[in-house]
């Protein structure tokens, strides 16, 4: 059985076409040590694997399970047909982000990186620890450049739109 993908829901035809080669052999998910880590989630089984779930939805970018992919490339390396599920899943993540459907943690992380230069907030505790250890203090000097980059690519507008706040 060939996996179904709704072309109207996707703007990256080559990635989608590649995904249609999938013959559901399951190798990408059922070889425990060498395959997909997300498969360990209790909602998946050898008959309904994580990759089938991601590739089989009519609107794959709206499937919340795409955010379980950790970009480890195991599926790509195991696949005997060069389907590269990771390319499909990452493409759907990009579409979901574009449409404002990304996991809320992602929007928070992206906004934090653009506005401070760090993925994780600088805290009083970390500053104190660094001082105790004789390490240089951290600063947000990169933020100015990152905000210029985000303005140029249009990311700032998406963050404003989907988080409802100014950077």
């Amino acid at each position: 059985m060939v996996i179904r993908v709704n072309y109207d829901a996707d703007d990256n035809l080559s990635v989608v076409e590649a995904s249609e080669i999938c013959l559901k052999c399951g190798v990408c998910c059922v070889v425990k040590e060498h395959s997909c880590h997300a498969q360990l989630d209790s909602q998946f089984s050898p008959k309904c694997t994580y990759v089938y779930d991601c590739l089989g939805m009519d609107l794959p970018s709206e499937n919340p399970n795409i955010w379980l992919c950790v970009s480890c490339h195991k599926c790509e390396e195991m696949c005997p047909y060069e389907v590269s599920p990771i390319r499909f899943i990452e493409s759907m993540k990009a579409k979901a982000f574009e449409d404002g459907l990304a996991h809320p943690v992602i929007f928070g992380e992206v906004a934090n990186i653009v506005s401070t230069g760090f993925a994780f907030p600088l805290t009083v505790s970390s500053s104190r620890q660094r001082q105790q250890l004789g390490l240089e203090p951290l600063n947000e000097s990169a933020a100015e450049d990152l905000m210029k980059i985000a303005e140029k690519t249009g990311l700032s507008g998406k963050i404003d739109k989907y988080r409802g706040e100014e950077l």
């Binding site: 970009s71 993540k93 982000f97 943690v105 992380e109 992206v110 993925a119 985000a150 990311l155």
Partner: peptide
């Protein structure tokens, strides 16, 4: 890489 690079590739 997982949250940012794969979602807004150009940025």
């Amino acid at each position: 890489p997982v949250g940012f690079l794969s979602t807004d590739k150009l940025t």
